[in-house]
Computed example of a mutant assay.
Amino acid sequence: MRTIKYPAVLLIFVFLSGCMFPQSERAANNLPNDAQLAQVQSAVNQYKSQQNGLLPIRTKPNETPVFQKYQIDFTRLKETGLLATIPGTAFENGGYYQYIIIRPETEAEVKVIDLRVTDKVRELETTLHFYEQENEFTPYKEQIVPGVYSLDHEKLGLDEPPTLESPYTGNLLPLYANGSGDVVIDYRKDLNHFLKETDHSYQPGDDIRYLLTDQSPIAPAYSPPYTIKDGDPVFMQKASE
């Protein structure tokens, strides 16, 4: 288990971040079930039909990564009478999940981001940014591919390279940084598993992260894009997206 030597200001940040999440362990905060997802999906489909193709989403900057960009605005669904209550698993109702839409131009599928993963990514980003401010450089260690780098964990006060438990397989996934200093999660272990264990039609050049959302309601937020080469997952050339 890695140990972080936190600056005092960082401890305040982590405490406040933790306060964002309710302490309740009630069943409603577990992984969204099929009925909850189907209810929200039905409401999204009806809204899209009634609003001439518009989606009930919050406006996000164009550069927002695709698996974080289209966050569902439950207020719109409630105001139009398409959703009576917000799912208990949703952050807006005390849960740990941000409901989002993927493939907005076609299926407009409802998926979720696990905000506990978000919290861990932001924790490491805060540690990284404090280091950058104090030392005026990013502690990159090795280039994984152009635009993605491993971090010098010792300079960051970590006992070992940072990892995160996969929400798909339980694998420990490496945490890297892109050229902007943002933390990204490397899902290649999971993608390799599903490429070999499931039937799929993905081809070189396709963004194969959708293989993960084909298997799970959880979206691979904070990940660079991947494609397939010789049957294996590889980073796309523009790996910082």
Rank of each mutant, 00 (worst) to 15 (best):
L158Q: 06
S24R: 10
P233E: 04
K120I: 05
C19F: 14
F67E: 02
S24G: 13
E25L: 13
L212K: 14
K5P: 10
N62F: 13
L175W: 01
E123G: 09
T227V: 05
P233Q: 08
N52Q: 14
F194D: 01
Y187I: 07
E165K: 15
V234A: 04
P204N: 04
Y99H: 02
E123H: 09
E132W: 05
E160C: 01
T227R: 00
K48R: 15
D214A: 13
A84T: 12
L212Y: 12
V117M: 08
S42C: 05
Q41N: 02
A221C: 10
Y149H: 00
E241M: 10
F235M: 06
I101R: 01
Y202V: 03
F194G: 02
T80I: 00
L156P: 13
T85F: 15
Y96I: 10
A221I: 09
R2K: 11
G95N: 06
D114L: 04
P61E: 02
L175A: 05
P87E: 05
F137M: 10
Q39A: 11
S17C: 07
T213Y: 02
A219P: 11
L211Q: 02
F91M: 12
E197L: 04
R2A: 11
S17Q: 08
F74V: 06
N93A: 14
Y210G: 07
K141D: 14
L124R: 00
Y226T: 12
G170H: 07
V183M: 02
K229Y: 00
H200S: 07
H200D: 06
Q51T: 11
L164C: 10
T80S: 14
P146I: 08
A38P: 07
R188W: 04
G181E: 09
V44T: 07
R116G: 10
N62T: 12
P233F: 03
Y70G: 02
R188V: 06
N178Y: 09
M236S: 09
G53Y: 07
A90K: 06
R2V: 10
D214N: 14
A8I: 15
V40D: 08
G147E: 01
